[in-house]
Design a protein around this nucleic acid. Structure first.
Lengths: 152, 152
DNA sequence: GAATATATGTCAGAATACTGACATGGGTCA
DNA sequence: TGACCCATGTCAGTATTCTGACATATATTC
């Protein structure tokens, strides 16, 4: 039975195609990260820490698009595995700056190569102009969506 | 402390911006669907059924990007709420074609209006050409990602 | 200085989605 | 026809994430 020739107006909805692309990207990332024993959220957290050492739990949560409670349990797991370290006492306030350990940096290096290959595959067939168009369009959509938050 | 001036190369990664946009879209959809007592997955299922009546559980799962097990529990909930109906016996094979009830169509109508307003807001500031560019680029990325599945 | 507001880290419980497994129906092919 | 393979529906258990709540620290305001 498999394929039905669809094509109502799902194929013309930017929202649906955005979700479809994001879902495909996540699945592809999971495929290449699984052999390394990592999940996408794992990787996101480590990559954020590599680019901005000392990020707090809440800042990492925002960067990985999860709640700070979820990031908290993830950080405890990463700490137990020896991939990150957090001071027992907060240097200032309650913020606990997190840093990668050498072990964390090593596994991240492998993961980065794998993930970059996925992103390269995703951009296959697109010109340099089209890639920068994609960047600009995605940024514009995110900005417009957040414009109507009214969270204050 | 709030904002740190970031901008390493997260802002130049199509993958990261894709996740960011998708996350913002999902949050915006949740905001407008919550007053209706619906989740995004609820809505996705109903919208799929409106556009292609008689879809099976597995087909709905693929269209909503969840497993067929997750869609199964969702369908039972929607059936209990009287939004969809499924025959007790499979007309052919094991496939149980699902259909919207009048009640399901009514609530979907409200949800569709709300979701469409979100998508319109997302596309604010983009020209017609840019919108079709977005469609084409997202389709290209999804296709390229799935090209390397090797699932057979 | 005191009060308020905002942000953080954390614990606990609930909701949601996933993986693993099984039986069944249909198609393919020798 | 029978063996095999694939897809489907479903049950059970696990895992991950979220919502709610609380205490604490900083900044802001009067």
């Amino acid at each position: 039975m498999g394929q039905h020739n669809v094509g109502v107006d799902l194929e013309t909805s930017v929202g649906y195609l955005l979700k479809e692309a994001s879902s495909a990207l996540r699945a592809a990332m999971e495929d290449v990260l699984r052999p390394l024993g990592m999940t996408v959220t794992h990787y996101s957290c480590l990559e954020l820490l590599a680019q901005r050492p000392g990020l707090s739990n809440s800042e990492l949560a925002r960067g990985a698009f999860v709640t700070r409670q979820s990031m908290n349990v993830l950080l405890h797991a990463l700490e137990r595995e020896g991939h990150v370290t957090r001071p027992a006492e907060a240097p200032v306030g309650k913020v606990l700056p997190t840093r990668l350990t050498p072990r964390g940096k090593r596994i991240l290096a492998k993961a980065t190569v794998a993930v970059r290959s996925v992103e390269d595959r995703m951009l296959t067939g697109l010109t340099e102009t089209e890639r920068s168009d994609a960047l600009r369009l995605l940024q514009s959509m995110t900005r417009s969506l957040r414009a109507g938050d009214d969270k204050a």
